[in-house]
């Protein structure tokens, strides 16, 4: 089920700095909350996010429980060549979710 949302411009000029936004549906359970039964709700967060483009990781992030639910990041990259930007989110259990977006660079 698609629960990630990335926005990347469809086209760009070589060398242009482009804006990117990425979001994933995830509760980012802190591990500090109590359930109705008084038991601590176990921590479960997205720990790592990375964006790869043209053979290289151009941006990455390490998240802690203080990052909001449905974590959102906005950053940029330099348009180098046409192709896919791939996005990767890894949670506490090592489960990986990915998304990708194509860009045409001229």
């Amino acid at each position: 089920m698609s629960r990630t949302l990335v926005s990347v411009p469809k086209t760009a000029k070589v060398g242009e700095v482009i804006d990117i936004r990425a979001m994933i549906a995830h509760p980012m359970e802190t591990g500090y909350r109590m359930g109705p039964n008084g038991q601590a709700i176990p921590r479960k967060i997205i720990r790592h996010f990375a964006c790869e483009y043209d053979g290289e990781e151009v941006f990455s992030a390490e998240f802690h429980p203080a990052v909001s639910a449905n974590p959102f990041v906005a950053f940029s990259t330099v348009a180098t060549k046409s192709g896919a930007l791939t996005f990767r989110w890894t949670d506490d259990d090592g489960k990986v979710e990915t998304a990708s977006a194509e860009i045409a660079v001229s």
Binding site: I18, V58, E62, H64, S68, V73
Partner: peptide, 18 residues
């Protein structure tokens, strides 16, 4: 809160999050 890794390919030393 978070640690972000950037480089020359990031283009700008700038980011936003929540």
């Amino acid at each position: 809160v978070a640690v972000f890794t950037l480089g020359p390919r990031t283009g700008r030393g700038r980011l936003s999050t929540r």
